[in-house]
Each structure stands twice: as C-alpha cells, then as structure tokens.
C-alpha cells in the first residue's frame, strides 16, 4: 500500500507558486494575442477579397489540423533554422499557442459575426455607414455577446494547453511540478496537487461560462 505524504509538497510551495504565476501569465498573453489573431483571421475569411479570404482559411486550417505539441516543437526547433531568427522557449511557446488558439477563436468569431441577422447590416448600410463602421458599431457588439461563452471555453482549454510548454523547459506550473517530483521522489503527490491547482483555477471559470450561456438563452 502506497503511503501518501502531502506534507512534503508544502516544501515546494514557492516553486509551485512561481510555476502557477508563469502559467497564468502565459495564458493571459496567449489569450490576448490569440484573440487578435482570431479576429484578424475571422475578418479575413469574411473578406470579399479572394486572396485575403484564402490566406485566412489556410492559416485557420493549418493550425486547427496539426497537433499543438508538434507546433510547439516546430516553432522552437525548426523555425529558427528556416528563418535564421533565434527564439527563446517562451517566445516560441507564446507564438505557437497564440496562433493555435487564434485558429479556434477565428471560427468562433466568424460564427458569431455571420449569426447576426443580415437586416442589421442592411440597416447600417442604409444609414450610410461604411462596411467597417457597420462591423464596429452594429455587428461586432451584438456578435460579441454570443461569442463570449465559447471564447471563454476555448480560453479554458488554452489555459490547460500551456502545460505543453514544459516540454520546451519553460518553467510553468507543470514544469516546476516535475522538478519538484524528481527532487522529492514524490511524483504521485506532486502531480495530484498540480491537477488540483489547475482544477481550482478553472472550475470557477466554467461556472461563469455556464451562467453566461444561461443568461444568453434568456435574453436572446
């Protein structure tokens, strides 16, 4: 029978806290950058300019249809060789995760935009708005409301995806946990605690999403 000893984990609390901070910081960065990439890709895919729409589709499909772990490794090892640009593990991680997330955000954002009644666009156009004004003043504000729950869902997934950057030795929560596990010979306890930390950070967010979805169902 295995003897659990969680007392030992406490010795690594600062290490784990450091790791958690890196994970949170990483998540914030990739969510923000991912949303920017996603918005641009969504607008690009909706563009009447064929090459722009094609480019946006290509980006979305490439990043949606290849494993994130492969992308991470590729951005860290292959891209510097191809481009000659040296990249730190953190930069490679942020780049890959942002672009990966952006490809999923793009489809959510595009879906939100096209779900808005065509009559809204026409009403804006009939007032004399430019297409960009229609998008900014009429369509996006309405679409955003519908997009928030799925965007949050995707961001929760992104939060968990940050754990993959530990393969590039970025000192996130998982990486620091591994360090502690090797150091203490107590991997079971450490991985359990790490799982609990992820859960405690994300579970409240899922509740928030659920509440948002319910509220949306009422007002829509």
């Amino acid at each position: 029978m295995y003897q659990w000893d969680f007392g030992l984990v406490w010795t690594y609390r600062w290490l784990l806290l450091d790791g958690f901070a890196v994970t949170v910081g990483f998540t914030v960065a990739i969510v923000v950058l991912g949303l920017v990439a996603g918005l641009l890709a969504a607008l690009g895919k909706l563009s009447p300019l064929r090459p722009v729409a094609w480019l946006a589709s290509a980006y979305i499909e490439v990043f949606r249809c290849t494993p994130l772990l492969v992308q991470l490794v590729w951005f860290y090892y292959a891209l510097p060789i191809l481009s000659g640009i040296e990249m730190s593990a953190i930069s490679a991680g942020i780049l890959a995760l942002s672009l990966y997330g952006g490809s999923f955000y793009a489809e959510i954002i595009r879906g939100g935009i096209v779900s808005i009644d065509k009559g809204q666009t026409e009403a804006g156009e009939a007032l004399g708005m430019l297409p960009s004004q229609v998008m900014r003043r009429v369509v996006l504000p309405q679409a955003l409301k519908r997009m928030v729950p799925p965007l949050m869902n995707q961001s929760i997934i992104q939060f968990k995806n940050t754990s993959l950057v530990s393969v590039l030795a970025v000192p996130d929560l998982l990486y620091q946990g591994q360090v502690a596990a090797h150091d203490s010979y107590r991997p079971l306890e450490l991985y359990t605690v790490i799982a609990i930390i992820y859960f405690l950070a994300l579970f409240p967010l899922t509740l928030l999403v659920k509440r948002g979805e319910t509220r949306l169902a009422v007002t829509d």
Partner: peptide, 20 residues
C-alpha cells in the same frame, strides 16, 4: 456608396432596429 445611401432613408418591413 455610403455617401449616396446617407441621402436616402430606408425603412424595412422588419424594422431592423439595433437591439443593443
């Protein structure tokens, strides 16, 4: 186009008010 449309008011069957 936008300038042209600004000079013509249009009222739709389904109102198309901005709900937000």
């Amino acid at each position: 186009l936008a300038r042209f449309r600004a000079n013509t008011g249009m009222v739709f069957q389904h109102f198309n008010l901005f709900p937000h």
